[in-house]
Design a protein around this nucleic acid. Structure first.
Lengths: 109, 109
DNA sequence: ATTGTATATCGTAAATATACGATGAATATT
DNA sequence: AATATTCATCGTATATTTACGATATACAAT
């Protein structure tokens, strides 16, 4: 972002934009899918499946966690990541509501 | 973005991330809703409803148009913007597919 | 205690995003 | 033709994002 005026919008729009931002990188979408596919979900496993360094993957995980899309449980040196199904459901509904609203918009001219 | 490696991911993930990026600002979500609500959809009308300058709104419209979420028809000095329902439906399905896939992910630990 | 394994975080470089004023382009109106 | 209206684009400042190497942290194993 930048010199942002995002604060001056309503809460619903701001929250949806936040979730969208978390999904606005193919690596993070990929990570969500990897977490879904795997039962064991360590950071290293994800690193192995992406063309990114460990530091970068960790950063992406942090962003996904920040908005609430995933959870991370520290277990000693390891950290077990998993999808936050509750939040995903919420996100799903918010996108669904937006698209339902917008989809039947009148075509101009 | 930045020194991005986004190219090295698969097409589906890249496209979804692109759409998400376009939705990753409350102003752009707001614009979609405004375009939905109004029959006449000039740029100036949108400017009146947002706490942003004309130049900034124009930039946001350009981004929404770039990814395909809206269309803009130039009519003399005016430009008539409208939602691209076809593309919105496609976007809706892509998000729906992602969330369906991810939502039933196994909870770790 | 030392070593190895797994992650997070720091520092940093380069690209992008956000925002706006100023200006340009395209047409209506006078 | 001159003026007003509407919008896009240019130039620019600042903040954020992406990426990585290096280092710190936390524990398990030897």
């Amino acid at each position: 972002m930048a010199v942002t005026k995002a604060d001056q919008f309503n809460t619903v729009d701001i929250q949806l934009a936040e979730i969208a931002k978390a999904l606005a990188h193919p690596a993070r979408i990929r990570i969500l899918k990897i977490l879904t596919d795997m039962n064991v979900c360590m950071c290293g496993d994800i690193v192995d499946q992406l063309p990114l360094s460990q530091a970068t993957v960790s950063q992406h995980l942090k962003e996904l966690k920040r908005v609430g899309l995933i959870q991370g449980n520290v277990e000693g040196p390891k950290t077990c990541y998993c999808v936050n199904s509750t939040f995903i459901s919420l996100a799903r509904k918010q996108f669904s509501d937006l698209f339902s609203m917008v989809c039947c918009g009148t075509v101009c001219k």
